[in-house]
Amino acid sequence: MGILDIKDVSKRFGGLQALSDVTLSVKENSVHAIIGPNGAGKSTLLNCLVGKLIPDTGSVMFDGKSVLGRSPYEINQMGISRVFQTPEIFGDLTVLENMMIPCFASRDGAFELNALSQFMKQRDVLETAEAMLVDMNMADKRGMHAASMSRGDKRRLEIGMCLSQNPRLLLLDEPTAGMARADTNNTIDLLKEIKEKRDITIAIIEHDMHVVFSLADRITVLAQGTPLVEDDPQNIRGNPKVREAYLGESA
């Protein structure tokens, strides 16, 4: 039993069997990578975990409770945070305001009609948000418009926003897609640092093998909608089945 248990999950889109009988367990406090060629069903699987899609069959249990049929916001309130492939932040707001929103969500829940106090005077939330910005090395950017930052900074902010909620499981969807090498390495360092500092489970979907092998302590290879193999990184490298399905002859 892990913190996240996926059992016999299948999902069909018209004539396409995107996922068939996926069973997968993510252990608490591990970094679990899910890799696979394009069209293997990685994103579909992720969307089933966060409430965006509902699988046709199977079950997804987080910490003993089913997530199926719940909205994304309810699943987040259970302790799962998601980082998107392209950073999803509040572009019209300042960096500090971006950071305060998840803090309010953790403190006040999914809805709170608090229309008569000033949000900049909510000491506890402001302090948590400021501390998180310092943690993320972004304190100097607090007044900036989030949309005007570089992609790497947006990613940093998004991860910071997720972490400020103290999630038990952090889901990362290709966190370094489309990034320059330097930005990729920064992101890897950031994630390593997070892992060292916190009791957190990370599930990561990634294309970039460099990222996967520097972070993961468990890897599942997905091909054509089914898990091909699950093993430790060093064994994955040498596995002939994986080479054939995914890494190709050159690897």
Partner: peptide, 28 residues
Amino acid sequence: RSPFGLMLRAVKSNQQRMGYTGLNTRPY
């Protein structure tokens, strides 16, 4: 200037992120 107003601006900016931040946009 209230937290409620901040959430309303967040709705305008990015509803997807709001949902995945644990906020229910509908009542807002």
